[in-house]
Amino acid sequence: MSYFLEQVLNGLSYGLVLSLIAAGFAIVFTSTGVLNFAHGSVVLLGAYLVAVLHDTIGFWPALLVAMAGAAVAGVLINALLVRHLADKNAGTAAILMLGVDIVLLTELTRRIGNQVLTLGAPWGASVVRFGDVSLPTGRVVAAGVTVVAFAGLWYLFSRTDLGVGMRAAAADGPTASLMGIRLSRTAATGWALAGVLAAVAGVFLTSFPAPGVAPTVALSAFAAIPAWVLGGFDSVPGAVVGGLVIGLTSALVTGYESDLEQFVGTGFGEVAPYVVMIVVLLVRPSGLLGSKEAVRV
């Protein structure tokens, strides 16, 4: 029973980190209609900034700088590249994002080299024990931070003018614009928010039990795509639910692989999130919590 509980906690805590990334995908999609395939590289950028800065300014200030840096990167991608394209052709924007991803990832790979950079996180490799069950401290912190982050997002979207404006712009951009909402402002805010979430997720994705910052982190971040899709492209709560479902699925399928092997063979843990995504989309084509009107490419 404790083994089952351990895998469940593993899966849920990992799922919360995925949901941070998935929420970034969803926010960019709702604010500018862009499928942001450069998001994985922004996650890596955030983690990289913490890794190179923590020695000189300390971990927490480095995290703040990384959040700001990733937010600026998002705003710049939007201002320089996306603004001219997004309204006209979402497909072109998606391809453009793949290009941005390659450029950013190549540069970060060049800088990181074959090293595994450490983050200097204060929780190191420590674990928290609940009876027979242990969980890395980093994951416990991640869970706490993620809950706070989503509470903040909820407040932003439901209680502030800016957030309500973003929702209005997402629901009907031209009408929102006629009502006085500046679409350029809501778009920039969306990209900045996604950048901040990416940096925070990057830190937790590279903290113990992961060893540190390596270029493959950008690939790991793409594990959040099934979470984003099955939650519904345009729903932040959907991203949270999707992240938890995917995290739990990965952990349980991997954890019980020896029992499942006779049915599905080895390595099913890597495939299972996509199977779940496809099954959910077959039953609910708009995802778990997505709007039925969502534009897909």
């Binding site: 351990e6 493959t216 991997t254 954890g255």
Partner: peptide
């Protein structure tokens, strides 16, 4: 046996198993 890919950087579930 536990099969993974290069994108698997957190091996918690595998280690637990």
């Amino acid at each position: 046996a536990q099969e993974i890919t290069s994108a698997t950087t957190d091996l918690s579930a595998q280690a637990s198993a």
